[in-house]
């Protein structure tokens, strides 16, 4: 039913998937090594961080919003949890606090946007600067390392579960939960409703402000989760972590066919969008495209995909 809700034909919905297959085929022809299990695991692990953020971004964009501050949220939450771990705080507690901080930073965005009636683009542009600044203040501009050897924390970024990297497992579990929330719960339905027609939603007795605050909090929480994975993998927190992550996340959402004006889209598309970006990053390396030129190709592919999508909608 959700298929028709968003008023896209099935063909339109699977278009991103076809795009992904096409890119994989081309890359594999140029370098068959792409399809090796170890490389695929690698791709998935690289994708997981962007995917987690993009899942949250899907909720935000579905309500008609946008969040530019996620990269900075990731850096700040990573730095704070790492700082606590380095100073000997119980790692589990430090991680939980990091997640909580992420949700709070997101809620602040949501409150500014919902209650202060500030355009999401501007509000999060400002908090992006503030959160990044706070990270620099907190870390004094230096990486934080010496995070101890808590097994839970180390596993988060580097461990395996049944041969699958834990970050990938985290991504899949989060995806399943979020998919369920969007599709089966009243909250999910309200997210679509607020993005589809805010006025009609409010007049139907939906607390649109609260929905907005929730989606930004959710995104903040997911950014914090991504930051823990990243910190664990690097075994340190970088003050510059997460720069430009917001753009990759937005690109994944849009590649997946979710409309930037809100109300239309789905999270499966976002997963595929994130995979497209991840496969491109990895594949362009494998086939030896010079790194500066990679960016040009990546941008061009995104543009092409979105243009094709518009053609079909028209």
């Amino acid at each position: 039913m959700q298929l028709k809700t968003n008023n896209q034909s099935i063909l339109q919905k699977i278009a991103p998937f076809i795009g992904l297959i096409l890119i994989i085929v081309i890359i594999t022809i140029l370098n068959p090594g792409f399809l090796s299990v170890s490389n695929l695991m690698n791709v998935l692990r690289q994708v997981s961080i962007n995917a987690l953020i993009a899942f949250g971004m899907t909720f935000v964009i579905l309500t008609g919003g946008i969040d530019l501050s996620v990269g900075a949220t990731l850096a700040l939450t990573g730095a704070v949890s790492a700082g606590m771990m380095a100073s000997g705080v119980d790692p589990i507690f430090a991680m939980l606090l990091g997640l909580l901080l992420g949700a709070v930073l997101g809620a602040i965005n949501g409150i500014i946007i919902a209650k202060g009636k500030v355009a999401p683009f501007i509000a999060t542009l400002a908090t992006m600067t503030i959160y990044r600044g706070l990270t620099l203040v907190y870390t004094d501009g230096r990486p934080i390392s010496g995070l101890g050897d808590s097994l839970t924390f180390q596993m988060l970024g580097k461990g395996y579960f049944l041969g699958i990297p834990i970050p990938v497992v985290t991504m899949i579990v989060s995806f399943a939960i979020l998919y369920f929330i969007l599709k089966k719960t009243t909250f999910g339905r309200r997210v679509y409703a607020v993005g589809g027609n805010e006025e009609a939603s409010i007049l139907s007795g939906i607390n649109a402000d609260r929905i907005k605050i929730y989606v930004y909090s959710l995104l903040g929480l997911l950014a914090a989760l991504a930051s823990l994975i990243l910190t664990s993998r690097l075994n340190s927190a970088q003050p510059t972590a997460g720069e430009m992550f917001e753009l990759d996340a937005i690109a994944a959402v849009v590649l997946g066919g979710t409309s930037l004006t809100g109300g239309r889209g789905w999270i499966v598309g976002t997963l595929i969008g994130a995979l497209i970006i991840g496969v491109l990053n990895n594949g362009l390396n494998l086939i030896g495209v010079p790194s500066f030129f990679q960016q040009v190709v990546k941008g061009a592919v995104i543009l092409l995909a979105v243009l094709l999508d518009r053609k079909k909608t028209a």
């Binding site: 039913m1 028709k4 008023n7 339905r189 679509y192 589809g196 027609n197 006025e199």
Partner: peptide
């Protein structure tokens, strides 16, 4: 502008 989410199905609108 105030009554419907036009992209929603009829059923989803009734549910709102």
């Amino acid at each position: 502008s105030e009554g419907l989410v036009v992209d929603f199905t009829v059923e989803e609108n009734v549910s709102m």
